Simulated scan of single mutants.
Amino acid sequence: MAAKARLSQAGVEQRRQAVLRYVADHGALRIDALADRFDVSLMTMHRDLDDLAARHLLRKERGRAVAFPALTMETATRFREGAGLAAKTALCAAVAGRITPGSTVLMDDSTTLYPLAGLLARRDPADGITVLTNSVGLAQRLGAVPGVDVTLLGGRYHGEFNSCTGPEVGGALARLHADLVLTSATAVLDGRLFHPLREYVEVKEAMLAAAEEAVLLVDHAKFGKRATYAYGTAARYGTVVTDTATPAGEVAALRATGAAVQVVRSKP
């Protein structure tokens, strides 16, 4: 029997993300069953699970892999960053025009907003945009864009999410006034918004209170789910931007809250 071709590092990571999703769907699975499911040796599956556990994406217990509580793994930056990039880029392109010259913009730690850095880099540096964010990753990307002045809202740093929360962030936001806030949501169901971690809900709410206008960017993958903490409905946002793959019933539920909904098409 011919030996299997050795996967590239990208191929290994693709398999590990598939393992992660499979465990998340089932809650807990025996490691030998996972090895059979993904047609790899028991040693290879142990390596995959050790890597995912080290990144705080699941728990590895005696003989089995266990998913974190609902949706927690979806909040981890390392998992989210490369997911749904085409849809995220389309959403950012739809809202980039709302960022006017001289404006002050709040942005949360959503990786949905990462493509904005490339879009803003195409603009005239004389526009003089100010961005305040609790996301280290977003601050790094926007900090390299000419004409964008970035303030990182520091507090308790969460390495797995590469962002900050806590009273320091909330206190800073209470003293600010922004023209626009751009955020996303981890889960949306029937027009209601959810997040698995309370401290991130607190940051989102403080940002909403500090801004004149609010826009929610949420791609189709976030719909039809709940998480531990509900924080109101889409009515808290003047506009919700989503993509064409979002179920029609969920789009109707967003509109029923009174929010204006913009549906955009993403390139494959």
Results as ranks from 00 to 15, higher is better:
residue 102 G to W: 06
residue 166 G to L: 04
residue 30 R to E: 12
residue 23 V to I: 09
residue 67 A to R: 03
residue 212 E to T: 15
residue 207 M to Q: 08
residue 124 D to K: 02
residue 99 I to E: 02
residue 122 R to H: 11
residue 172 A to Q: 15
residue 45 M to D: 11
residue 233 T to Y: 09
residue 114 Y to Q: 05
residue 125 P to A: 10
residue 56 H to N: 15
residue 235 A to Q: 10
residue 61 E to H: 07
residue 207 M to P: 07
residue 233 T to G: 14
residue 71 L to D: 09
residue 189 L to Q: 13
residue 142 L to A: 02
residue 201 V to P: 02
residue 196 P to E: 00
residue 115 P to M: 01
residue 125 P to I: 06
residue 256 A to Q: 12
residue 177 H to Q: 13
residue 267 K to T: 13
residue 266 S to F: 01
residue 265 R to T: 14
residue 194 F to E: 03
residue 211 A to L: 09
residue 106 L to M: 03
residue 2 A to D: 14
residue 52 L to K: 01
residue 105 V to Q: 02
residue 258 G to R: 08
residue 255 R to D: 04
residue 86 A to W: 01
residue 182 L to M: 09
residue 93 A to D: 11
residue 237 Y to K: 08
residue 115 P to H: 01
residue 41 S to N: 08
residue 247 P to R: 06
residue 71 L to H: 12
residue 228 T to R: 11
residue 222 K to G: 00
residue 83 A to P: 05
residue 38 F to E: 06
residue 167 P to W: 11
residue 203 V to H: 09
residue 89 T to V: 04
residue 162 N to L: 15
residue 64 R to H: 03
residue 26 H to P: 06
residue 140 Q to K: 14
residue 40 V to I: 13
residue 199 E to G: 02
residue 247 P to Q: 07
residue 167 P to T: 13
residue 5 A to D: 11
residue 196 P to H: 08
residue 247 P to T: 02
residue 33 A to C: 06
residue 188 V to F: 03
residue 250 E to N: 08
residue 178 A to C: 06
residue 129 I to E: 01
residue 216 L to H: 12
residue 260 A to H: 09
residue 242 T to G: 08
residue 62 R to T: 12
residue 179 D to E: 13
residue 20 L to H: 03
residue 88 K to V: 02
residue 205 E to Q: 14
residue 136 V to G: 01
residue 199 E to R: 10
residue 215 V to H: 12
residue 3 A to M: 13
residue 165 T to M: 02
residue 201 V to R: 00
residue 182 L to G: 08
residue 152 L to I: 15
residue 196 P to Q: 00
residue 221 A to H: 13
residue 91 L to R: 11
residue 55 R to P: 02
residue 30 R to L: 14
residue 96 A to Q: 15
residue 28 A to H: 06
residue 29 L to S: 07
residue 240 V to N: 11
residue 87 A to E: 15
residue 174 A to T: 13
residue 172 A to R: 15
residue 33 A to V: 12
residue 257 T to I: 10
residue 123 R to I: 04
residue 86 A to E: 11
residue 230 A to R: 11
residue 30 R to Y: 00
residue 75 T to K: 00
residue 179 D to L: 10
residue 40 V to D: 07
residue 225 K to D: 03
